[in-house]
Amino acid sequence: MPSHDRRLIGAALVLLCGVAAADTVYVTLEKDDAIAVIDGATGIRTRTARIGKRPRGIALAKDGKNLYVAASDSDAIQVIDAGTLNVTGTLPAGKDPETFAMDPDDRFLYVSNEDDGRVTVIDIAARKAVKEIPVGIEPEGIAVSPDGRWVVSTSETTNMAHWIDRAKLEVVDNTLVDPRPRAATFTADSRQLWVSSEIAGTVTVIDTETRQPLKTISFKIAGVTPEKVQPVGIRIDPARRYAYVALGPANRVAVVDAQKLEVKDYLLVGQRVWNLEFSPDFGRLYTTNGLSNDVSIIDLASHKVTKSVAVGSHPWGVAVRP
């Protein structure tokens, strides 16, 4: 079938499923101390607003009203009105917050504090740190299981995923992973944890029940030396059909068959791709490309990169609002 026809059918399917809904994409710009806003459907940048210093991790509240942004050099997580982009408050995030994860019930934020080897638990409503949990050296990735049982923190120099029992807020188990773990993501059913290891160039898939690795996925790209393959961000679709892995300076997103745990394809995006986010309808994937200063938009029906949007200096994190 000519690709032209395939595209038409794809478009028809998209229309049938009613998934062409508009969405708003928020991108933190690490070197611009700003946040850029993109209209997801058109791929047009609509706004840029100054926020705190060195913004990196970003998440949207469940009700879609507030954005939370880790302003690393301001030592705070800023609360930002998603409509006006005004900073309306700050959460005490400890020193140099980089990444954080939201509770399934929107009550707590879990923050990686790289400098002092701790995970800080913040009560969002009270705007207060309620607990600090010691983990390994340089905690980086953090994830909360959708069933609410686990908080997992990965430490870059200790090379472990630390399993924090969310009810007790204590580390109860540790899984050794490959060197320099970056991001951690649970599958929608909470049964698997995926951890990317930047220096080893691998993703470890861990069984939640046993906390033992099921498989380590590696990536081989023709014409790219193995040292350039540095996996960071991971997104897995809710049906666990495909997982997408940002491969950093390899400038590609890997498409992984999430059932067989095998790489299906590599999609060429911008330079040093770090973080990923789905559109609310799972029809598109947005990538932040730190060195080419743009966001790539991937159409997930066809697995094709459809657009790149110039956003500003060093795009880092991405969140999407319906």
């Binding site: 029992d165 009810a167 204590e170 188990d173 909470s190 049964r191 029940e209």
Partner: peptide, 22 residues
């Protein structure tokens, strides 16, 4: 020492969990 206590005495999980292998 805390690992064991926490793994055994945690709240009722959504799915059955094996105790942490410590």
């Amino acid at each position: 020492a805390l690992f064991q206590a926490a793994a055994l005495g945690g709240p009722a999980p959504v799915r059955r969990q094996t105790p942490a292998p410590v």
